[in-house]
Design a protein around this nucleic acid. Structure first.
Lengths: 222, 222
DNA sequence: ACCTGAACACCGTTCAAGT
DNA sequence: ACCTGAACACCGTTCAAGT
């Protein structure tokens, strides 16, 4: 009798491959997720994945589509377009953080799939409603997406490095103040005199500052 | 008789290793430069490199130091701090372009060497002269450096991809308009109606726009 | 059509052994 | 102290062969 509903090896599919990729990205970080590690978890050989995914880069694009689909872009409110953009940026970073390791998958990959383009459409709809010209909107969208992904990717890198040294993320930063403390005040008068400003502020504040820079800059053109 | 001045294998040194790395980064792109390829060009085994360089990541940091040392940061002119920062950003991007493949080396690497910190000191000196507070300066410097490196790295990625397909860089973009052309205007009303704005503007204009965004944003806080 | 084992052509890094 | 050959434990991708 065929055990239909409890088959130990359901068929491979793009969805299952991306599922496993997302899990492993979270648990191991970008560099430790390989075609082989994914295949192993799926109980198959690495060659089998290539029947569903062309190559590693396409897998990255699929992961980008998956996390893009999680974004919820609000209906444009012309009165509060700037706040809507700021909120969206914060949502994007939070989404990357909820799915560690995925930021790297988006870098260098243009959004070309339907999934990935839906939030882009939403972003531009908000900008247009706010009265931002198409040219400015296009370039602004580029800069914002690049900034958010870069910040998320850097955070992933610190996480991976801490994991490599097998130390908690906080104490990985411990030796950084040493660099500034050991600087020659003659040669580095500014750096040595702004020590605490270099260190202060959490990731949240830094990111909010950067997003505010971009949005204020855009407003100052209008 | 010992042929002193024409020794075919001068001693290995960090400098020579970084020299070769920079050359190969230019000619092959980041991913194709390996400990092995560097060792091969130096006529030695890959293991020999490890007597001078701890690992690949340290090599990247050394490359970052090398290109940082090429930057010329002007004496602060309080009247024109904003233009000085814009010029510096343009110089940074030009420097990355003159040394293709090096942008990736800087990503995720904090400037900790003396070489790498000299231009950072110069940047902060300009900002301080311009009256920017230390906290703002610190966060702004972060965002600017991240933005410039990201843009340069993306350009390197397009270049590598074009190289992989063995096609010139221009025609690698040929199929991109197709993506927008095939979009459903019902689902993507904004994207389909801003076609030319998405494409227009060279890399130069886009970058100048992004830098202007950051600087204008910073000014609007003062 | 989908899956597999085995191979190809690579990686970074380590280490015992040489000079 | 510096260098080397050889190995270890990996990569992405391909391909002939199976079902």
């Amino acid at each position: 009798m065929p055990a239909r509903s409890t088959d130990r090896k359901p068929r491979l599919s793009v969805e299952r491959i991306v599922d496993v990729a997302m899990d492993q990205l979270r648990e191991r970080g970008y560099d430790a997720v390989t075609m082989r590690s994914i295949a192993a978890e799926l109980g198959t050989g690495q060659a089998s994945l290539y029947a569903h995914v062309a190559n590693r880069n396409e897998l990255d694009a699929l992961v980008m589509g998956r996390i893009s689909a999680m974004l919820v872009v609000p209906e444009p409110d012309p009165e509060h377009w700037d706040q809507q953009i700021a909120d969206l940026a914060i949502q994007m970073l939070a989404n990357f953080r909820n799915h560690p390791g995925t930021a790297r998958c988006t870098m260098g990959n243009m959004p070309t799939s339907r999934e990935a383009l839906v939030p882009v459409e939403g972003l531009f709809a908000i900008l247009r409603a706010g009265g931002v010209g198409d040219q400015d909107a296009s370039w602004f969208g580029d800069a914002l997406a690049l900034y958010v992904a870069s910040v998320a990717w850097e955070e992933d890198i610190w996480k991976s490095r801490a994991r490599a040294v097998n130390v908690d993320e906080e104490s990985a930063w411990d030796h950084i103040p040493d660099v500034f403390g050991s600087l020659d005040p003659q040669e580095f008068p500014v750096l040595t005199s702004m020590g605490e400003a270099m260190m202060s502020g959490g990731a949240e504040e830094r990111f909010a500052f950067g997003v505010n820079l971009l949005i204020s800059g855009l407003k100052s053109r209008m």
